[in-house]
Design a protein around this nucleic acid. Structure first.
Length: 100
DNA sequence: AACGTGACTTACG
DNA sequence: GCGTAAGCCACGT
């Protein structure tokens, strides 16, 4: 897998993982980092997403580990939530992604 | 090469 | 459940 991060740079590996998140699915920054081969780089993943403006990368599907959405450089949490709802992602009463 | 920064995470009170 | 603190990491200066 290209996400094996063996020789893959952090950036490429992470983008690849995020790009592979299925429609209607979500993944926490930590999960993305782990899957990319950098289990402790959740924070760096966020920094990378912040700089990434590639529409091929569904960064709106990357959320916080506690179920909150986190930020979004294309309109903030509101837009982010809207996009996810549109993709069929379920939310609980507190506006967090339903993980159950 | 050192420092500051930030779309994070976990632990503690 | 919430606020604060500390840990962790890659990146631009």
């Amino acid at each position: 897998m290209d996400a094996g991060s063996g020789n893959m740079s952090f950036r490429k590996s992470v983008l690849s993982v995020v790009r592979d998140i299925p429609h209607g699915g979500t993944m926490s920054y930590g999960e993305v980092a782990r899957r990319a081969g950098f289990p402790r780089a959740a924070r760096a993943v966020g920094s990378l997403m912040r700089k990434n403006f590639d529409s091929m990368v569904p960064c709106h599907r990357v959320i916080r580990s506690d179920g909150r959405l986190g930020e979004y450089n294309r309109g903030g949490e509101d837009v982010k939530r809207k996009l996810l709802e549109k993709e069929g992602v379920l939310f609980d009463d507190r506006g967090r992604v339903c993980t159950a």
